[in-house]
Amino acid sequence: MGDQIVLRVNNLRKNYKQIQALKGVSFDVPQGCVFGILGPNGSGKTTLLGVILDILKDFSGSYSWEGFSSNAHARKKLGAFLETPNFYHYLSAEANLKIVAGIKELNHPDIPGVLKKVGLFDRRKSKFSTYSLGMKQRLAIASSLLSNPDIIVLDEPTNGLDPEGIVEIRDLINTLREEGKTLIIASHLLDEVEKVCTHVAILKKGELLSSGPVQQILNQDPTVIVSAKDNQVLADVLRRHPSIKSVSMVNSHVEASFTSYMDPADLNTYCFEQSITLTHLAVNTQRLESAFLELIKE
């Protein structure tokens, strides 16, 4: 994953009459990451994607797709879909993808290839209106892969898919990530995001609660469980740490929490410098679900 940024979002605000759908959202999306936009229904995920895909107007703040001459040029190069899959109902999958290829000005689009990738090749001549919800979703994913884009934006990509389909999409996302592609995925399914995302932005009622690497979000307020030969001395040393939030003795361990992300290696070094050799060190990592619930509860 490089340090290069592919998308900068700066203080985005969007109102629908009296409702503030986005309240000054800012974040950067690094190249090569799987960036999850998380939030309960109505948190502003789709509004955010709508703004950066030029579907929604009348917003304040700014966004920029880095490395493109214009936003329309960026959209031509990236693969994206928003909410429900949108295709011409009276046309076949193949004909629909020809239109996408026409818009993206692709000279030799690999339509059979992307249809095979999502398991729709055998139904390529069928009209879109005859597809099940899961097949429609697959076609939307095929469409977003058509230009072999470096950046892919997916809104609830596993909507309507059965468990097998969900696993397939997850594998596909991992494959794309291994190919070095950047994926921006909006979802309310925490388990799904935790399994595939490297970075997340958490939204609640249009407000960005947190954003950054998943591990950092999970460990924002972690409990570190440590022990040493003399736990009392260890507790005193920990109380002097500049980022300490709380220290408590639990059975034969000391539990400490910090005001910011604490790398276990740094903590070990700190204790060693204070002449304490740790005999036990464990970070009580949260699941994304609990971190998320805690964040949106606040």
Binding site: L53, I55, A72, R75, N86, H89
Partner: peptide, 15 residues
């Protein structure tokens, strides 16, 4: 009706 106007824009057409 099919919301393809949105998809056309997302795919790269300007308004």
């Amino acid at each position: 009706r099919y919301r393809t106007h949105r998809q056309n824009i997302i795919d790269g057409l300007s308004r």
